[in-house]
Every structure is written in C-alpha cells, then in structure tokens.
Design a protein around this nucleic acid. Sequence first.
DNA 1: TTGATAATGCTAAACGTTTAGGGTGTCAAG
DNA 2: CTTGACACCCTAAACGTTTAGCATTATCAA
Lengths: 353, 353
Amino acid sequence: MRRKTMRDVSVATGLSTYTVSRALSGADGVSAESRAHVLKVAREIGYIPNRAAQELRRANRDSIAVITASTSNSYYLDLMEGIHHELRSTGRAVIVGDIAIDGAYSAELEDQLVRRLIESRTAGVIATLTLTPENLKLLDQWDVPVVFVDSDPPEDARHYPSVTTDNYAASLTVGHHIASHGYGNWLLLMYPGKWSTRFERERGIREAAAKHSADLTVVECENNDLAAQKALTLHLEGAARLPDVLIAGNNPLLLGALRYCRAKEIGIPDNMAVVSFDDFAWAPLMDPPLTVLDEDSKSIGSRAAATLTAIIEQQIESEKRNQSTKPDYKPEYRQQMPARLVVRRSCGCASAT
Amino acid sequence: MRRKTMRDVSVATGLSTYTVSRALSGADGVSAESRAHVLKVAREIGYIPNRAAQELRRANRDSIAVITASTSNSYYLDLMEGIHHELRSTGRAVIVGDIAIDGAYSAELEDQLVRRLIESRTAGVIATLTLTPENLKLLDQWDVPVVFVDSDPPEDARHYPSVTTDNYAASLTVGHHIASHGYGNWLLLMYPGKWSTRFERERGIREAAAKHSADLTVVECENNDLAAQKALTLHLEGAARLPDVLIAGNNPLLLGALRYCRAKEIGIPDNMAVVSFDDFAWAPLMDPPLTVLDEDSKSIGSRAAATLTAIIEQQIESEKRNQSTKPDYKPEYRQQMPARLVVRRSCGCASAT
DNA sequence: TTGATAATGCTAAACGTTTAGGGTGTCAAG
DNA sequence: CTTGACACCCTAAACGTTTAGCATTATCAA
C-alpha cells in the first residue's frame, strides 16, 4: 500500500489540499460539514501527516530536548518526571539526549547531539550539565534557548537561566551535621567539574571542615560507580587509617563507595560513617539506612520546564511582531531551591527519620 | 542573523547546491578541491543543514524508537545501555517514548506516541510492553518494523520478533528454590498483563507451587511502588498470618513490598522471606541483601537493537529492488535468553553470593 | 585529429505540507 | 439593481534539501 498523502485525502473528498489542511489542523475557514467529511475520509483511508513536511513548511520548533550524562543517577528520574509533568499540557514533545558512553561524559557526543538538535530545529534545551562554551555559543547563534538544571552555565555566560539547589548552603548543613558527631577526619568523594554543582558542594564542605577544624581530603573520579570504587581502593589502600566519615558527592559515587565498604568489610557507621548527596527510593532500606541530602528534583525539573516554555512563548510572540528572536533571559529566571538533610543511620545517628 | 541555508553556502562558494550537497554528505562526483572549499565555507558561515528538509526529500527513516512505560524499573537502564551500545555505530538516533503518567500505563499516550512515530516516519520500534492490536496494525500498515523486548506481541500477532527472558523456566527455578526452604504459603505480587512477562512468570510460580503443594495467592496491582504498597496493606490487613514468602513480580513492586515490611516492622527473612524478579545495583547492599532473579537486560537490549537494524537494512535493500517494503519477520528473530537466580539472604539462605 | 571515456558540475524537478492572495456565491442593506 | 460584507474554498507559491538527466571539460588511445 502506497503511503497516503494529503493529496489522496484531497482527491477522495473532492476538496482542495487547502481545505483538507485547515480541516485537519482545526483552523477556521472551513464549513463544519466539510470538516467532518475530511476527518471521516482521512480516518478511513488511513492518512497520517508527514511531520517532516509540516516542520519544513512552518519552520516550527515544537519539541524540547534534555541533555544529560548520568541517567543512572537517581535524581534523573525525578527530574524527568517533573519535566514531563510540566510539559504534558503544552503538547511539546520531550526528547532526551544522553551524552555519556558507558557512564562517562563524552565531549564528542555532546558536539554531535548539539548539532543534531540544531539540525532538527529544537525549540529549546534543558541541560543537566555545564555545556562547552562552543556548543553554548552555537545554540545561541541559532537562537535556541537553554536552561541549566542542577548545574551552571560556563564561567563567561552567567546570564543564562538556571534552576539549581543551593548547594553551598546544603553542603554547610551536611558539614555541620558531620561535625556534630565529632568526626575530625573527612573524605569527600567527588565527580568532575563538568557538573558544576561540584564546586559549590566542595566549597561548603571545605568551609565547614575549616570551621570545625577537621581534616578534609578530596578524591576525584569519573561520574560512575565503578570509577568511584576504584578511586577509593586506590586512595585508601596504603592509608594508615580510615577517615571518620565518607561524603559521597552523588548517587553513583555512593554506590561505588558502599560496594567498597562491603568488599573490605568496613562497618557503617562504626568503622566509618557515610553520608551522601541525593536521596533515592532505596536509601531508607539499605543496611544501614542512609543519611542523605535531599534536593527536590521533581520541582527542579518542572520549574526548569516552565521557565523554558515561558522563554519560548515569548520568543514566538516577538517573532510575530518581527522583533528579535534572541531568547530573552531575565535575571529572575535564575532560581535556587532549598535542600533538606534527611537524617537516617549511616551518619552515626541512632534515630530513624 | 538570518538562518543559513544551503543556498548561502552555494553563493559563497560559487558552486551549485548540487555540489554543496554532495560535498557535505560525502558523496562522490565532487573534486577534492571543491569539497574542501565547501566544507571550509560551510563551517565559516555557520551553516547547519535543515533536517526536516532532508527527511522530506529523501523520505528517510533514520531513527528508531523505544516505547516504555516503566522507566523506574531497574532493568530499564541496562536495557537502554544495551540498545545504545548496539546502535552507536549505525548512526541511528534513539528516541525513547515513555507512555506512563505518574507511573501508570496510559492507553491514550500509547495512541499518541504511535501516531507521532508514524508522523515522523520512524524507522523502527522496540516495544517493552505489549502494544494494543490497533496500534500494532497501524505500525504494520506503515511498514514500521516492531521488535518486542521482555514482553510479547498481542495474542493474534505471534509472528513478531521478540527478545525475552525464558520467564517460565526462570520462575520454576525461583519456585523450586523457595520450596527448598520449606515454605508452604506463597504470596505473588504482580503487575498488570499489559506486560506479558506476567503470564509466564505466574505460570512458572503456579506450577512450582502445585508441584511442591504449597498454597499460592496472587495479588495484582498497578506497576509502581505506591500501588504495590497499598495493595499489600489491603491484602494483608485482615489476614490471619503472614505468608512464608513474598515473591515480588518486579523491581517497583519490590520497592513497595519492602516499604510495607519496613512500616509494619516485618523482619526479613525471619517473619517473611522475600524474593524478587530483576536484579539491580543496590540489591546486595540492602538489609538484608536480596535474593533475586537476574535477567541479562543489557544483552536483551543489544540483541533487540541488532534484530531491528537487521530487519530495517533488509527493508531498505528490498525497497531498492522495488520489492515489497513490508518488514520480513523471520522465525529465528524470536529469541529467548536464560536468566539466573542470584541467591543472597532475603530468601532465608545464610550464605552471601 | 578524432572519438571514447571519465570526471566534474549544473539545472530543474521533486518531496508533502502550509498559506498568501484571490475568486465565487449568498445575503442584507441601500 | 448595486454594493459591501461574509463564508467558503481554490490555485499556486513557498519551505530547504536531494537527485535524475544533461552539459562541459580534460584525458588518452588510436
């Protein structure tokens, strides 16, 4: 069966493609009778429009993309839920682009993806990591608005919208709590600076350590569980003694850390306490239940989506008025959300939540 | 800055769009000199092709879609990893379509998605659940090949390719292991039949129960943790005593079940043993470590992707030869993979893996 | 010198929509 | 009988690529 085109519907109804198009799209200038006829016939002969042709003709950008490199991070699912929830009503499609290969960020994939997004004239981008300045510039050249979530734009582009946790304050909270247990020897396990949350988190911890005059060591590794386990093995191999507390920078690193402890039979929190960023569903069911800093990823996602659609809508408006189609980034689009420490038992506390 | 088109490159180089097109796409019929010139100029003026126009003209279908409704299920990530891994080299893009709203399957979203996939002339579909017969027929009408993973096609369309675990054999294994602990009272917590693995899994458990003359109760609920917890509460509320063992049909249901146990202070495995389908990263770190049936989701994903691309390639071939463009579903495309029981402690065994 | 062959590049026609600009018919008011 | 307003619909020209069908030039053997 040959693919049906609008022309087929046109012939079958005896109406022009103009009328068919308007009838199907719900635009007016078509009698109710004609419209009904068109819809009926279209259904009967199994016509489905060709999106490529539509997009070409109306130069329309109707889907938005999420760029991520850590789908295994627990916060990702909540984030996506927030984004979908917010976008469901707008009719925009969400496409997710994962630019990690085997859990490690790939610059090459980032370039490819950004190019592809421009090729398909994506309406806007939500980035979960700090894009390269080149790619950001490219997107800017093509007037594609970008909103950063849970990460910042690059150094020289601070005016971009972003929805982040107040990671500095959050880390301070974590640090103070740790200190309250009397731990003097801290180990912070951290992912690369590609995810800019890293810097604020480290700053908070560092400051708290200084304030409570604790020793702090920072170990960096790739953003996945295997790398974390390996880095920890390497670092603690020759060490005279374990740190009092291990702070895992995020969810995948926590997994690696816990695996390490299990392998070396390190008791938590007796031999070494553990706290981590990012709460997740299984955390309360672990052995022991994990003390964790919880950020509200779902809200972050929906806020980011809302911000992005606002920008896009405005872009469409000003295009209609023949004004600039550059996205208008208002200062108030830069938002910070609070986080909350969920105390369970891995930090050394005896109480449940 | 106006958007650049191929015409701009053509003017800037003094070559026709024909030559520009061929140069950029790497086709021959262009001198090395011209090609270099075109590439240089294209880069300079910041030209990026318009994908809608390309797709319209070459009627090409170059991306494949994954239809899923349970992204929170742990096997999903592994599955996607396998799919990406296999597809990376082919240059095909993967788009994932989530047809769940707040964790529950939505028929409406399925219809929307399938329509949209046809609109954008998607090359092929990997379905992680049993599609409705209507949608399958629609995809078939448009010659879009479909491969089912970890689920079967609908009743009347058994000739479709599928890559599944041998769930019947796997469930028998689970059942026998449970029985070896002497449990006589089993509770099976199950998701809806929309995911067809349900039937084989239930059949295996049922048969094992019969063979070992154990009492089996099956409780069904929506495919998410909250629903599982609620269903369990409801079912066990008035019960005289707990079952000896709880079998969770999959990962989200397991989460709900464990939450329930935690809330009611039911000790595992002493008060009630727990086993589950689908292994996941945190399972060995839980309290207690979970006995689980592990299917090799990554391999399933890559096999499915390989099968789908094979079908698509062949479709392209026979289209060139002006033969039918109907996908050719060979019987050997129906594949079953073995699964493996990972014994930890929640089943009542004392030993670690 | 000639004809054959290969290499390179051009023109113009698609691909399947949307939509500007116009045409027709009806009806009420002047 | 005009005129204008309105509702409905049509024709034809876009949108930005790819590609069939030629045209030109260079190269080379006879």
